Simulated scan of single mutants.
Amino acid sequence: MEIEDIPLPGSAPGLSLSLREYAFGPKDADCSLYVQAALHAGEVPGLLLIQHLLERLVTLERLGALNGRIAVMTWANPIGMQQVVGGTLTGRFDCAGSGNFDRRFPDVRLEVLRRIEAGDHPRTLHEVKAWLMAIAAPDTKGADPVDYLKATLLCRAFAHDMALDLHCDKTAIMHVYSNWAQEERATALARCLKSPVLLLEEHAGGGTFDQAFHDTWLALRRGGLPCESRQGFSAVIELRGQRDVSDELAIGDADALLDFLRIEGLVVDREAVAQRSAPVIAALEAVDHVKATQSGIVSWQVGPGEYVERDSVIAEIVGVTPCHAARRVEVRARTNGILVARMHVHFVLAGQRIAMMAGSETVPGRVAGALLPD
C-alpha cells in the first residue's frame, strides 16, 4: 500500500487543504482502476464504503491477490467539506459561487486532438496515461481553488483505465450512471451492486467528472492511439439516499465493488462472484425530473423502487398559504417507469425538482447535451 497526500491551494487565508490517495497492487499492472468518494461533499455513504474497501484491499494485497492497480481517493472534495452551514454539511454547490462541484470539469479533448494531429503523441498505454496526466495537470499560478481541485482529480484519474465516482441521492434506490459505449461493462457493475436501475447516456452534458474522463479516452480512441475497450470506462454509483449510512450497507457495497474487480481481473483471490439479477436499463433521455406544482407539504403515495404507470398519482402537495389552506394538488407521473429517487424533506417550493423517474420512452423536452440538472 502506498499513501500520497496531495496539497491543494487553501480556499481562505491560513487554511491548508489536501487530498489523500491510497494505491494498491503493482505499478506496472496491465489494468487499473480509480475510485473516489464525496465529490459532492455532503454525500456521506461513499466515505464509509471507502473505509471498508481500504481494509479489504490491505488484506488482498497482503495475500498477493491483486493483479491490477487500484487507487482510492478517500475524500474528493475538502473544499466542500468545510461548508457547514447551520450545522449541516452543504457540499453539493460551492458557496463561493462556482456552482455544482460535479460540473464543468476541464475538457482536454481539443488539446489531445491538437497534439495527435501535430504528431506529438505517445506509443504505449503507459505513455498515454502519463501524457494525459501532463495535459490535465492543474495550473499552479493563481488558480481558483475549485478549478485546481477539479483538474487535480481528473489528472489523478487519467493514470488509470477505469474510474468510479461514488455519490448518493436524497431518498433513493441504488442506481448507476454510465454510457452506451460501455453498456456491457456497466451492466456487470450494476449486477454486482444489485442495482435495480442502470441509466445510460451518449452525451449528457454538464461536464461531470465521469464524462470528462470517458470523453477524453473516446477522443484518444478516435485519434488512433492505443486503447482497449476498458480504457475510459467510467460510472457514477448512487449509493441509495443520504440517510442510508451503515456499516452493513457499506460492507456489502465494498464487497460488490470487489466482485466487479474480480470480473475485470484486478482481484484474483478465487472467490466466486455471485450471480445477480440484471438491472432495468433506461436511456437518460427517458428520465423524468418531476417538479412540484405548488409550494406546500408533500405527501408521497409511492416509494423509491416502485413501478408506476403514466398519469398515476405519485404524491400530493398540501398548500399552506391562507388562500390555499388544505388544498391538495396531485403530482402525476408523466411516463411509465420506476421511481428512482425523491426529495428527503417534506416542505417543497413550486417548481422545485422533487422526484426522478426512469422510463422506457423519451420524455418531452429532454435534449442530448442538457440532460443533467444542476
Rank of each mutant, 00 (worst) to 15 (best):
G91M: 07
A286M: 04
Q211M: 09
G205I: 02
L284F: 02
A283P: 10
H324A: 13
E330M: 09
E117V: 12
E183A: 15
A250P: 04
P26G: 14
L199V: 14
V236N: 09
A38K: 04
R123L: 13
L257R: 04
G10C: 04
G252S: 14
L198I: 02
V348M: 01
L149F: 07
F233C: 07
E183C: 01
S312H: 06
H324Q: 10
A186Q: 02
A38E: 09
V298M: 05
E117L: 14
L261N: 01
I314W: 05
F158Y: 15
E228S: 14
I281S: 12
T335N: 04
V44A: 01
K129I: 03
E264A: 11
V367F: 00
V313N: 07
G86W: 02
T187Q: 14
G365C: 08
L371N: 01
D311A: 13
L200M: 14
K27W: 05
N77G: 09
L266H: 05
R270C: 03
F260T: 02
G265P: 11
A274Q: 10
P322L: 10
R353G: 05
L125Y: 08
R191H: 02
R276N: 12
L198R: 09
G365F: 06
V290W: 03
V112H: 03
L57N: 05
Q211R: 03
E202G: 07
N67D: 05
G241F: 04
G205K: 07
H160N: 11
K27R: 12
V290N: 00
A190V: 05
G207E: 11
S16R: 14
I70C: 03
T88V: 12
V290P: 01
L48V: 15
Q182S: 06
L220E: 12
L154M: 07
G351P: 03
L199W: 00
A136S: 15
